[in-house]
Amino acid sequence: MEKLIDKQRVVQHMNGRLLRNNVLKFLFFLATLFGLIVLVVLLYRIFTQAIGWLNIDFLNNFPSRRPENAGIKAGLVGSLWLMVIVAPVSLILGVGTAIYLEEYAKKNRFTDFIQTNISNLAGVPSIVFGLLGLTLFVRELNLGRSVLAAGLTMSLLVLPVIVVAAQEAIRAVPNQLREASYGMGATKWQTIYGIVLPAAIPGILTGSILALSRAIGETAPLVVLGIPTFLAYLPRGIFDTFTVMPMQIYNWTSRPQADFQNVAAAGIVVLLVVLIFMNSIAIFIRNKFQKRY
């Protein structure tokens, strides 16, 4: 009578399975490592180049033909001005759309159509939004090359991302909460305002701030709008013209003089710091308001 369990074969199989497990673990680790190494090399290169060029003067100077005098002031202030428009416009429109689609709209062909288009818009190249902004905001509405025109263009660019993120966050709010609220006699709006949104805010903000970070790093649509690169003055309002950090960096990297490459690296460091600052706000808010149901 053959034994029901052949110890020998079990061991053999076990070794094979364990080996496969280890090989896959190693492959996935390599995949993670690859991204990390590239990031470290990139950061190392940028920081070694930027060191010595990154100082108060760099933050306080306007663009210049001489690398040692060149600064990012106009770009830094311009990028923040851009956020003044993009943040409220894209948040109000994006979260509004998400609330309508998730809470009010009935599921039918029409909302499916909207939903598909929002997802598609998220994948449209940014330069196309630049062309749209040029015809619509700069020319038709006659806003010129102002903070407002560029801000509205960038809002359209990040809007799909914010809508999708906000929808996901709203959908993640358990239905029992809504039903409990209705059960207490609350109206739809009272439920959204008092129950759904507070629970969804961490998710909405995380997605939104990542979207805003994208807006602060974009160059192509602004080049299409004709936003200038050299300015020796700062905008005083939303109808003034301005410039942004990525455009300064783009210009510096394309210069023949080697010193401008270092200036560009210093610019990248400033842009990274602003981005990290924005992302840490997102993380801070998420952690502060996160609740588990």
Binding site: W81, V84, F289
Partner: peptide, 24 residues
């Protein structure tokens, strides 16, 4: 507690706003 979240949302927006105006 609910109110706080709305303040946070408004707070982030207005902080960005205030910072830029100050810079400008």
């Amino acid at each position: 507690m609910k109110k706080n979240k709305w303040f946070a949302l408004a707070g982030v927006t207005s902080a960005v706003l205030a910072f830029t105006t100050a810079c400008g």
